[in-house]
């Protein structure tokens, strides 16, 4: 392998080892990367493989002495037939779609509002990011308290004025999921705003100034210039949030526990319940693998979309 930048160093005699410099350098880099790779393979990939393996077994720690019986695809068939599992898939997609859409719309508005550089906006941004740093469990507890019908700041009045019904939004099968979505929106919109803001700030100013000089209105500038240029950042923010929202657990676990009547059960929640509460390892592994599959599929769709957007941007 010939390298251009270290070409001159190759001539230097290597000390001790009889290896050429470029080879020693390669070995050095491999040695630096190897611990992390080995670690992740051992502690993440190996359990993942085990999870795939377990999903083909009837394996319940509380039944039959925890014996494993090979059942082929039975767990996946059971998953298909299971009403809660179907509900969980629908809920997780609805949650992800609803939360990320709202986070994007509100986040974009906030980013535009914060665009102007200055001390004031930086301080605002710092405070705006507080929800992102708060323990998700605590976020759930805060909203659970605020929405409590007997003494919560929102819940009391919502019930009193007959908006939420006497038992509150979280106890209602139709409103529970939207409320949980709104809690996620509260927590993560600042992050989306921040990422979009970083994108806005890296836009080439000369193009924006040229558009303004040509007499384009603010709305025209936004639609024709800012948005197309911002597209890569938008995709980035969306991918990041979709991946995270799809794995939602904490806030649902705290606010509704998946209820009422599975109305807010997510894939993660159902998997944890089956695996670590009922110790139905085989079935829970199938849920886990289904979750990975969904995430991988969404990743693929996003990659396609990004590539298409790139092509279109290059044509322009």
């Amino acid at each position: 392998m010939t390298t251009t930048s270290v070409g001159s160093i190759d001539l230097a005699p290597s000390r001790a080892s009889g290896l050429r410099f470029s080879d020693r350098r390669k070995l050095f880099l491999v040695a630096l990367a190897l611990p992390a790779i080995l670690y992740v393979v051992l502690v993440a990939v190996w359990p993942l493989a085990q999870g795939i393996w377990y999903s083909f077994f009837d394996y319940n720690l509380l039944r039959g002495g925890g014996r494993r019986t090979f059942v082929g695809l039975d767990n996946y068939i059971a998953l298909w037939a299971d009403a809660t599992a179907r509900r969980a898939v629908i809920n997780t997609f609805l949650f992800t779609f609803g939360a990320v859409t709202l986070e994007f719309v509100i986040g974009l508005g906030l980013a535009l509002l914060l665009w102007r550089d200055g001390r004031f906006n930086r301080i605002c941004l710092a405070f705006l990011l507080i929800p992102v740093t708060i323990t998700p469990i605590v976020v759930g507890l805060i909203f659970r308290a605020l929405l409590a019908v007997d003494y919560g700041f929102f819940g009391y009045y919502l019930a009193e004025w007959g908006i939420s019904g006497p038992r509150g939004f979280l106890a209602n099968t139709t409103t529970a999921l939207p409320v949980v979505i709104l809690i996620d929106v509260w927590e993560w919109t600042p992050l989306v705003a921040l990422i979009l803001l970083a994108g806005l700030k890296s836009l080439p100013t000369d193009i924006l100034e040229a558009a303004a000089a040509d007499g384009a209105t603010a709305l025209q500038r936004f639609r024709m210039v800012v948005l197309p240029l911002l597209l890569p950042t938008v995709f980035l923010a969306l991918v990041l949030r979709v991946m995270d929202a799809f794995r939602v657990f904490d806030i649902i676990f705290v606010t509704t526990g998946g209820g009422p009547a599975d109305a807010t059960t997510s894939l993660m929640l159902y998997g944890v319940k089956q695996g670590l509460e009922f110790f139905n390892i085989g079935f829970a592994s199938a849920i886990g693998n289904l979750t990975i599959l969904c995430i991988a599929l969404m990743c693929a769709v996003f990659t396609l979309l990004i590539r298409r957007a790139d092509v279109r941007a290059n044509e322009r």
Binding site: I37, L48, Y54, F249, L276, I281, A284, S285
Partner: peptide, 23 residues
């Protein structure tokens, strides 16, 4: 390899947590 690390970051913890728990 860099993308491999990125992919690991998107893994839902439930998929690894159960086998890890048993381990």
């Amino acid at each position: 390899v860099a993308y491999f690390f990125l992919a690991i970051r998107t893994v839902p913890i439930i998929a690894t947590l159960i086998p890890f728990y048993l381990m």
